[in-house]
Amino acid sequence: TTYKLILNGKTLKGETTTEAVDAETAERVFKEYAKKNGVDGEWTYDDATKTFTVTE
């Protein structure tokens, strides 16, 4: 399944996708990605669109 991440950081904005077996796995991948890019904020997930959003 393809999951999407929307980054709404103070200095970094953008989108990325990952293939994962479930939302929990995708969330771990995306949180590591955000951490590596210095983005830390509020996380939300929309199951209907398989989209995570992190907003600083």
Results as ranks from 00 to 15, higher is better:
F30P: 00
A48Q: 11
E24N: 09
T44E: 14
G41T: 02
V54E: 01
T16P: 03
Y45P: 00
Y3S: 00
E32Q: 08
E32P: 02
I6V: 08
T53K: 09
T25R: 13
N8K: 09
T1L: 11
V39T: 04
T11W: 13
Y3E: 00
K36E: 15
G38M: 09
V39Y: 05
A20C: 04
V54M: 08
T11A: 13
T49C: 04
T1I: 14
K50H: 14
L12E: 11
L12M: 14
T44F: 13
T18G: 03
T18F: 06
A23L: 08
E32C: 04
K13D: 15
A20D: 03
E27N: 07
G41Y: 02
A48E: 10
T11K: 15
K10P: 11
G41E: 01
Y45L: 02
T55Y: 08
T17Q: 09
A20K: 03
K10I: 15
W43D: 00
D40M: 07
K4P: 00
A20L: 03
A34K: 01
A34I: 08
A34C: 04
K35S: 08
K31E: 05
T55M: 07
E24S: 07
E24I: 10
A23F: 12
A48I: 13
G14K: 12
T55A: 06
T51Y: 03
L12T: 13
F30Q: 00
L5Y: 02
Y33A: 03
T17Y: 05
K31D: 03
D47M: 14
T1V: 05
E32T: 08
N37E: 14
K36L: 12
I6G: 02
E19L: 06
G9Y: 11
T18A: 08
T53Y: 06
D22G: 05
L5R: 00
D22R: 05
T25L: 15
T2L: 15
V21P: 15
K10T: 15
D22S: 09
T49R: 15
V39I: 14
F52A: 01
V29S: 07
A20H: 03
K10A: 07
A23Y: 08
E15Q: 10
L5N: 01
A34V: 15
T1F: 06
V29Y: 10
A26I: 02
T53I: 13
E56V: 05
I6C: 05
K13V: 14
E56N: 03
L7S: 03
V21G: 14
N37K: 09
K50R: 11
D40A: 13
E24Q: 09
K10V: 14
N37L: 13
T16R: 15
V39R: 02
Y33S: 02
E32K: 08
E15N: 03
K31F: 09
E27M: 15
Y3G: 00
T11P: 06
K31A: 07
E15C: 03
A26Y: 00
W43K: 00
K4Y: 09
K36Q: 15
A34R: 01
V39W: 09
Y45W: 05
T44M: 14
D47C: 04
K31C: 04
W43P: 01
D47L: 11
T2P: 09
E32D: 06
V54P: 01
D40R: 11
G9F: 12
K10L: 11
K31G: 05
A34N: 03
A20W: 02
K35P: 02
T18L: 12
G9K: 03
L12H: 09
T1G: 09
T18S: 09
T1N: 08
V39C: 04
A48R: 10
E27Y: 08
I6K: 09
A34D: 00
T44D: 10
K35H: 14
T2W: 14
G38F: 15
E24L: 07
L7A: 03
F30W: 02
K10M: 08
V21W: 09
T2K: 09
L5W: 02
G38Y: 05
E56P: 03
K50W: 07
V54G: 01
K31L: 14
Y3C: 01
E15V: 06
T44I: 11
Y33K: 02
E24W: 07
T2S: 12
Y33N: 02
A20T: 09
N8D: 10
L5M: 11
D40P: 05
E24V: 09
D46M: 07
T2N: 12
G9N: 04
V21H: 11
D46R: 04
N8V: 12
G38D: 13
D47Y: 10
D47T: 08
G9D: 03
G38V: 05
E56I: 04
T17V: 14
V21E: 12
D47K: 15
A23G: 13
L12G: 08
T25F: 09
A20I: 03
E32R: 06
K13G: 08
A20M: 03
E19P: 07
D46Y: 07
E27S: 09
K50T: 05
V54K: 01
N8Y: 09
N8S: 07
T2C: 04
G38E: 13
K35T: 15
T11Y: 15
T18W: 06
T25H: 07
T16E: 10
E19M: 15
G38I: 06
F52Q: 00
Y3R: 00
I6R: 11
D46I: 06
I6N: 05
V54R: 00
Y3L: 01
T49G: 04
I6E: 05
E27R: 11
K10R: 14
I6P: 00
L5K: 00
E32S: 15
K4H: 08
V21T: 09
Y3P: 00
E42A: 10
G14W: 09
V29C: 04
E42G: 06
G38R: 08
K35D: 11
D47N: 10
F52M: 03
V54I: 07
E27C: 05
A23K: 15
V54D: 01
Y45F: 10
L7Y: 13
T55R: 07
T1Y: 10
E32I: 06
R28Y: 11
T44N: 07
A48V: 11
E32F: 07
V29T: 11
A20R: 03
K35F: 08
